[in-house]
Design a protein around this nucleic acid. Structure first.
Length: 940
RNA sequence: GGGUGUUUAGCUCAGUUGGGAGAGCAACGGCCUUACAAGCCGUAGGUCGCAGGUUCAAGCCCUGCAACACCCACCA
């Protein structure tokens, strides 16, 4: 190393105490934000990530914290690499979720949506949004996320709304948005349609009711019965039945096809039809058909021209199409009544327990009703095709790859997207109706009139519906950058580089972004999709309010008392009966609450756990280890600053030791690993490499290796200077490499270091260059020397450990055998060896000399001999040797087995064979040495 | 019913093109050694889910099976 890395300005302030995250984080973030260093700067190649916009209703949860850590690591890394970096942030208006939140608040205040009226309600929502609704943005700051706050967007801000309207109009004009009457998923609680994706199918225990439907007079089945048996899980829908279906090949019923049954209770006559859909083996082989309330039956109804009888109101109470006895009853009340009435009429054959999949709304959790309504749809086929191609041809890559299969499977079987919602909060559909019910679409009412040739005298009424929230989120990457305007930002940062997201919204969001972005910009929205797993609790269970197993990232950062945690977990429970259990478990699991670990420790934990493509079980125990790591960095820096004071003189000559050269070469390997890991989105490997290097190479070995020099009064100024320079240079390099994961502590420590060793903006580590591999020396010779030293020192320590010799006690050391190379290596490392292993006298024994009673370790050809006199317990040493010999003998048997195998010799590559031979020889030598030693001990 | 993933030390997970099974935490033993007890030194622990196959050689490739997890799907 030359002296060039280090500077003349050493502030030499030093640091005290230990790592205290609370004392550094808040102030530091504020300083970063004020200084504007989150905004894109410079002429580097652009690098852009669009944040998955959290809902305005969200509070920062562990999933956000995880995701934001990964994004921030990527952003900070690329910023340090000199890229012109934009992390585009913002929030989503979260149509249904937000309306529910504000509606609940109104209810608590004793008023309702209807009382307020549409306009006043929307004003209320905006008020809420400007108040507590934006908390999530403030919380994101606590994670250290370096987003560009000056460009924060909202999916209902003015510009974004313009983009949404523009997209709607253009799709409508192309015929890709249409309005029509269809059977849709209807949420009777929210009284709105929802898309297929918003329906969760869950297995639930239910029943299968078998009813008798009497045949029309004069008819009978083959076996003489006057009725057909139909089975249903939903008795109430029978009021809307318009047929009974059998399989066309079913001999039992062939003669009845085309005839009628009497629909009980409704007192209607409905036909018996034949359709392939029916499975003759299931139940009686007869199926009741309710086209207005079942998706399959709707299809069958269409095929057979059946009437649709809608029997439900919007809240799923029975309507006036049903017999008077059932009108206005809730669907589940009606069910009971109908079963009872059929039973009374002798038409209930039997009831079976039955597990069925029940469709529930993902927001309301209520049972979804297929219901016939007028809705707006996106004709999705033409949009899906190019989106499939973009992934097929590699324009977009998923990491890990397997998620592409999931994407393809869904996209190739995609169905039209119902985008209208019967709600108030959201983007209102830009369509107007005249008195005749004719629809006029335009960006504004005026445009709609103009296009429809309507003058002001014609009354128009705007469509009441709003758009699915995902319709606007689909435009996120380009609308946030200014589309439909061709802004410089759009030119520069689109397509974005990578989308970091969970697999749970691949269909909701990722797929739709790809479709919409290709359609409107002709570009992909992002080149890569990094799909991360979901954060679960330590046992692998989903974190949920109901389970009371959630962990708030802010509580891990700031700490929380046991009772604070209990209060949090049991507040506002939907199932209050769980509260006692949750409180008890929380007190058991967190008897001392959660200590404040700080943001860096949390971030490092997330990085280390970000394995590919699977969920992660978040165990709080992990974070403690990474907090300790931060403290380790703190203390290492404290040590360095104690010694670099006055290093500043660049002109002084320095003389690097093998240890100095070794750690620099190892630093080069670290940089290489970091670059490679980040490029592959292997945050776990990146975190592990930094941890391993900092703790086990830099601290455990290098710092210790500098002490013999720093504390040696006879060491030359050049030697001491080299150690100081290297300590500092490697620390500065390490801080830069670690910074994207642990920004707060690295920045804090870096500020204390003497400056002048970077090429970036000296005021912040954020703008220092990320170390390049080429700037660091590759020094295999030094690595070999220190590896040798480590092996010898470890051998001696093992002897100490096994024989319980105090580390404080100085021991003598004899060496025997060994190659010329061993003698060279000893010569270069002897002073280090003496110090690290606490060696007194050190002598070579001639090969033929008989060693004294001793404990022996063998390294290659070299015997490390620690004379036993007065040190040990012979029996313990014999046991140790036996164990060692057994282990080596086992290895040797395997090697010999290979070498005795002709197939191996003939077919394995020469290098592999040679390696085995060398291994065998080494094992033989070691075994001989240990066996000799053992026999000598027995002779004592 | 179709599909994907997982199965490696007590726990959480690495293991790159097939070539001597690894880390962290937990456990055990010893240390307040001049940055750090949130620390230091050392030790122990695994028939790599099961059964076959390919290969000189399998944690890794192929086939089958099992368990678990998730995604999709119209069995009343």
């Amino acid at each position: 190393m030359s002296g060039k890395g280090l500077a003349s300005r050493a502030d030499g302030k030093g640091i005290e105490g230990s790592f205290d995250p609370g004392a550094i984080e808040g102030e530091l973030y504020a300083r970063w934000e004020r200084s504007g260093c989150f905004a894109p700067t410079g002429n580097g190649a652009p690098y852009c990530i669009a944040i998955p916009p959290p809902n305005v209703t969200d509070r920062l949860h562990i999933g956000h914290a995880f995701q934001h850590t990964l994004m921030d690591a990527l952003i900070r890394y690329q910023r340090m690499n000199g890229r012109c970096t934009l992390w585009q942030t913002g929030t989503d208006h979260a149509q249904i979720a937000t309306q529910m939140v504000v509606e609940r608040q109104l209810l608590a205040q004793g008023t309702t949506l209807q009382d307020l009226g549409r306009k006043a309600f929307i004003d209320k929502v905006w008020d809420w949004k400007h108040g507590t609704g934006g908390d999530i943005s403030r919380q994101i700051r606590r994670m250290g996320s370096s987003v560009d706050w000056s460009r924060e967007r909202f999916t209902m801000d003015e510009g974004f709304s313009r983009a949404v309207m523009e997209v709607f109009i253009r799709l409508y004009e192309e015929g890709l948005i249409y309005r029509g009457q269809r059977l849709v998923n209807w949420d009777p609680k929210l009284k709105t349609s929802i898309s297929d994706l918003e329906v969760d199918s869950r297995e639930e225990a239910g029943r299968l009711w078998h009813f008798r439907y009497p045949l029309a007079p004069g008819l009978a089945t083959d076996d003489g019965k006057g009725y057909l048996v139909v089975a249903t899980t939903r008795p109430e829908t029978m009021l809307g039945d318009t047929a009974v279906a059998v399989h066309p090949d079913d001999e039992r019923y062939r003669s009845l096809v085309g005839k009628d049954v009497e629909l009980p209770l409704a007192e209607r006559r409905i036909p018996i039809i034949a359709d392939d859909y029916v499975d003759p083996a299931f139940g009686s082989g007869c199926v009741k058909i309710t086209p207005a309330h079942d998706f399959n039956d709707y299809e069958i109804g269409t095929r057979h021209g059946l009437a649709l009888v809608n029997i439900f109101n919007a809240d799923a109470s029975v309507n006036d199409n049903a017999p008077p006895a059932y009108r206005h009853l809730d669907r589940f009340v009606a069910r009971e009544r109908i079963v009872a009435d059929l039973d009374a009429a002798g038409l209930l054959e039997r009831i079976e327990e039955h597990t069925l999949t029940v469709p529930r709304g993902d927001r309301s959790e209520t049972v979804i009703e297929p219901w016939l309504t007028d809705q707006w749809f996106v004709k999705i086929g033409p949009l899906a095709e190019p989106a499939i191609r973009a992934v097929e041809n590699g324009d977009i890559e998923f990491v890990p790859r397997q998620y592409e299969n999931m994407y393809f499977a869904w996209m190739r079987d995609i169905r039209d997207w119902c985008i209208s919602r019967q709600q108030w909060w959201g983007h209102r559909i830009p369509a107007w109706y005249d008195d005749a019910g004719k629809v006029h679409v335009g960006r504004t009412e005026a445009e709609a009139r103009l296009k429809g040739g309507l003058d002001d005298a014609v009354a128009l009424r705007q469509d009441d519906d709003v758009l699915d929230t995902w319709f606007s989120s689909a435009l996120w990457t380009f609308a946030t950058l200014g589309w439909p305007e061709r802004t410089p930002e759009l030119e520069r940062f689109h397509p974005t580089d990578v989308l970091v997201t969970g697999y749970d919204i691949i269909f909701f969001w990722v797929a739709r972004m790809i479709m919409m972005t290709l359609k409107f910009t002709g570009e992909v929205p992002f080149r890569k999709v990094y799909v991360h797993g979901m954060v679960r609790d330590a046992e692998g269970a989903k974190m949920s309010k109901t389970r009371g197993n959630g962990l708030d990232p802010l509580d891990m950062i700031d700490g929380i008392s046991t009772e604070g945690l209990v209060a949090k977990r049991t507040a506002n429970m939907t199932q209050p009966q769980m509260a006692a259990d949750i409180a008890a478990r929380t007190r058991r699991e967190y008897p001392d609450g959660i200590p404040p670990y700080g943001t860096d420790a949390l971030r490092l934990t997330f990085c280390a756990m970000a394995s590919q493509g699977r969920d992660l079980a978040f165990d709080l125990k992990r974070i403690e280890g990474y907090r300790n790591f931060c403290n380790k960095l703190w203390n290492a820096t404290k040590f360095v600053l104690m010694h670099v004071d006055g290093v500043a003189d660049r002109a002084s000559p320095i003389e690097e030791s093998p240890a100095d050269r070794w750690i620099l070469s190892r630093t080069r390997k670290l940089a290489a690993t970091a670059h490679r890991a980040i490029a592959a989105y292997r945050f776990d490997l990146y975190a592990n490499a930094v941890y391993e290097f900092a703790w086990h190479e830099y601290c455990d070995w290098y710092l210790e290796l500098t002490k013999p020099v720093l504390f040696d009064e006879e060491a030359s100024a050049a030697q001491v200077g080299a150690a100081r320079h290297t300590l500092l240079e490697v620390l500065a390099t390490l801080l830069r490499i670690a910074h994207p994961m642990v920004p707060f502590i690295t920045e804090t420590l870096w500020r204390r270091l003497p400056k002048g060793n970077g090429t970036g903006d000296e005021s912040t580590l954020m703008r220092q260059p990320f170390p390049t591999v080429d700037a660091l020396p590759d020094d295999p010779e030094a690595e070999a020397a220190i590896d040798w030293l480590k092996t010898v020192v470890t051998g001696i320590r093992t002897i100490r450990g096994e024989l319980n010799v105090s580390p404080a006690r100085t021991m003598d050391l004899l060496l025997q055998g060994g190659s010329t190379r061993d003698r060279e290596l000893l010569a270069t490392t002897e002073s280090l060896l003496r110090r690290l292993a606490k060696i007194g006298n050190l002598n070579w024994l001639a090969t033929e000399d008989e060693p004294p009673p001793a404990s022996v370790q063998v390294v290659g050809d070299l015997k490390i001999i620690v004379p036993l006199a007065g040190l040990i317990d012979l029996e313990a040493e014999r046991r140790r040797l036996h164990k060692e010999i057994d282990k080596l003998a086992k290895d040797l048997r395997r090697v010999d087995g290979k070498l005795a195998n002709d197939g191996f010799l003939a077919k394995a590559p020469a290098a592999v064979v040679a390696k085995e031979r060398d291994k065998g020889e080494a094992l033989h030598k070691q075994l001989d040495a240990l066996a000799g030693q053992l026999s000598r001990l027995h002779a004592l």
